[in-house]
Amino acid sequence: MLEPIIQNNVVCHALEAMIFASIACSILGVIISRMNLSSIGFTMSHAAFAGAAVGMFLGGNPQMAAIAFSMAVAALIGPVSDKAKMAADATLAVLFAMSMAIAIFLISYMEYMGHGLSASSLLFGDVISLYREEIYALAAVCILTIIFIMVFYKEITALMFNMKIAEAAGIRVKLVYYVLLFIIALSVALSLNIVGGLLIFVLLVTPASIAGQFCFNVKSMFVAAPLAALLVSAFGVWAGFEFTLPVAPLVALLLTGVFALSVVISFKRRINTKIH
């Protein structure tokens, strides 16, 4: 998509992937942070990790297996929380442990059986070896996320405000919540190859946290978070290739740096000391 501007195919693909992943994840991050579902990032990333391990173990496509497994875990979060009467965060922790156990079990077993399995690309991502199809899939998820937010904007904001009040208002809370979990699962699973399971958290939480330092309303957060993620990711890709640095960790560090700076300069927390 950016080939006419960027001649180098590797840089072009990396930039496109980072742009799509950062936009999708940061938009979802605004919802996740407000609903205290931050742990969904590492639960989903490890579910995708476990799914990829299952895919490799069965000799199938690890990416597809990662998506399928994440979707299955996403489908479990809501009903398990409801049935077990637990906070979604506690359910996420249980599912995270289960996913990690499956992944470690299969990786260890394959090593024991003499079938090598490199988990590093899943854990740390590999932005320079992406296929065109993966970028198209990321673009599709990015568009799907934007459409989802636009179509269900009023329901999502009501959920972000207070789930019980939203339910009492007659909003179909469970339906919107479950669709939201599915889209998060899909975004995380597809972004896994770019930033890896360990750094996906940065794309989900940090841009929303940066936006939260400056924005007073949710609409501006939905604009500011992807904008911050987009600018930092694009700069990170450029700097990574220019100075031969690992792109994903660099983007993560840059985003963290911007967050630290935003905490320092945020006008939201200033106290008015004027007497008159």
Binding site: A158, F161, V218
Partner: peptide, 15 residues
């Protein structure tokens, strides 16, 4: 909480 009172009142009509 990133919602104004007006937005919260509007949420009452969402259902």
């Amino acid at each position: 909480t990133p919602f104004t009172v007006e937005q919260v009142v509007m949420m009452g009509r969402y259902g």
